[in-house]
Design a protein around this nucleic acid. Structure first.
Lengths: 202, 202
DNA sequence: TGTACATCAGTGAACGCGCGTTCACTGATGTAC
DNA sequence: TGTACATCAGTGAACGCGCGTTCACTGATGTAC
């Protein structure tokens, strides 16, 4: 009985070739999925992109998704992780001013998919699971410490306060610059942020 | 000429014979829907709340929704509008420091549903329609102007730069304080924002 | 003032689509011998 | 080294649920006479 049903299904849906890949290729595919998701989530939000679109963008069909991840939430967590790792790794800045200039640049403002995870997904993460939220907290903490080290000075408490204010100002300025319609106002916000928070080229 | 005629007609006929009489209860229900939506959207995001939940919270069934609004997007726009209007109206602050203390208070941090629309829905609005985005731009502009007026001083350009940085810093500090897990760190972020953005003598 | 009718906000079922998830099946890869 | 078999990443159809939207219907409200 069941065999008959399967037979009918198979007849009605002729399949095409091109199947199993090497383990290396599979690992590459998995990495591609996470990278694609990390970009698309930042651009459109967690709820703004479906697994269908992610898998298609990665060059696969949606069915293969569950060979790599247990759920969409798992992918979200990995995508956030990758975004944070890349942003931390990308920091080749030697000073606060250098970092500030990169963070409040027009390239970063326009490159949401490759930019700051906090600015792009902060709201979504706050409403979602505790896992990404805890990871994000650690990221904020390390950013504050890095900034405080750059700021330096005799008063450590004052440097830390200033570091926190600088981190907040950078984040807020980027979000404002992205939220505003007028390109002139947007550029003005970026410039004001660079100038007021210690950038080197105001 | 034609435009004048239309204008006169519109002004002279606030209640035409064909227009239905506004019923008190219906108007109250509509207002209740917008208020509920404005709160729930801020708490859970546009995609985090369904019309079902909004209507139920407002004490109605979901079917009645389309007697008042054309679509969910329309309600989103009105909910943003109401949130911005209330936040602007609520500003009874006489100085930047007074406003800053209210904005970076623990009450505001914990009261997302009644708080700053930009902090709660900035990301969603940026990805959505142009209508709310334009409205948000005007709001940002007026906030900058208000801050610049409070800051004052002989150098108008410097005051404006400082106003922009203050607006960005307040927004970023609130978002960071909400995103962080550790209550102590969260309180520290709020305190640092109040101290650093409070003016020349914090 | 009362009666008959029209209006329309609200109800609850139903529809349709999107999307996360599952599943039977494929066939080249990787392994055992 | 070659052969047979087992594995499993990928495919595409299908499922199920949620949610935005539609609709026939209700009955109280407002209006006409």
């Amino acid at each position: 009985m069941v065999a008959v049903i399967y037979l009918v299904k198979a007849q009605g849906a002729p399949m095409e070739a091109n199947m199993r890949v090497t383990r290396q290729k599979s690992a590459e595919n998995r990495q591609k999925i996470v990278e694609t998701a990390s970009r698309l989530f930042r651009e459109k939000g967690f709820d703004g992109v479906g697994l269908d679109a992610i898998m298609a963008d990665a060059g696969l069909t949606h069915g293969a998704f569950y060979r790599h991840f247990g759920s969409k939430a798992d992918l979200e967590a990995e995508a956030v992780e990758l975004g944070l790792a890349m942003s931390a790794e990308r920091v080749g800045a030697k000073s606060l001013g250098e970092y500030l200039d990169a963070y409040l640049s027009q390239q970063h403002r326009d490159g949401v998919g490759a930019g700051c995870v906090m600015a792009a997904l902060g709201g979504d993460i706050g409403r979602n699971g505790a896992g990404p939220k805890r990871r994000m907290s650690a990221h904020v903490r390390s950013a504050i410490n890095r900034f405080a080290g750059w700021i330096g000075g005799p008063d450590a408490a004052a440097a830390r306060r200033r570091a926190i204010a600088t981190a907040a100002g950078m984040l807020g300025a980027l979000i404002l610059a992205r939220a505003v319609d007028d390109p002139d106002l947007s550029a003005e916000i970026l410039a004001a942020g660079r100038a007021e928070f210690g950038g080197e080229t105001p």
